[in-house]
Amino acid sequence: MPLSTIAATLLRGFGTTCLIFIITLALAAPLGLVVSFGSMSRFAPLRILTRAFVWIIRGSPLMLQMIIIYYGPGLLWSGTALPRFSATITAFTINYAAYFSEIYRGGIEGVPRGQYEAGLVLGMTKTQIFFKITLLQVVKRILPPMSNEIITLVKDTSLARIIAVREIIMEAYSFMAKGLISPLFYAGVFYLIFNGVLQVIFGKAEKKLAYFR
């Protein structure tokens, strides 16, 4: 089989992989913030409900969540299933929002209360305190765990093949039937390069925030 065919197939799969990654990140990052506010709420029912949600999502396999979201509507109430790709994005977004929310919560709760109080006695509004004082300190704190989680997300995209979304591993695997194992190794290289780039970006960001402690 010509190498160009393999390359074209893998690139198409990699495109899908990138799409799952980017859309999930773009949706889960802000949604996670909303969830983290819920889990820090002073209103107990909301806090308990949010924490239960986080427990369920983090405590069960993403693969299972995808299966439920994709097959659930048809099997449970004979509804129409979401398209494969949308089901994947939905499951990934919910799952990663739960993980991100815990990282955010740790970051926000890690900023000493004295920072907030110092802002208050200097006559700042709560909004000013959040944007001018707290935010950057939170970003600095969450950067290492976030980079970890985001690199995991890159690799987790391969779970999409469970509901036949043709991401790069699924495409590479299809060559196995023809007796070719090398495409799987090439696929591995794609992941390594992608995560290498992410690692460099996060390293730069951490360095940029190293000027304060």
Binding site: G114, A118, L120, G123, R213
Partner: peptide
């Protein structure tokens, strides 16, 4: 809130643990 902030400014406070903004 605006009025509360104005009243607050009658007082300044120096904390035991400084609470400078690190960034």
């Amino acid at each position: 809130e605006r009025e509360l902030r104005r009243r607050r400014l009658h007082f300044g406070l120096v904390f035991q643990s400084f609470n400078l903004f690190p960034q």
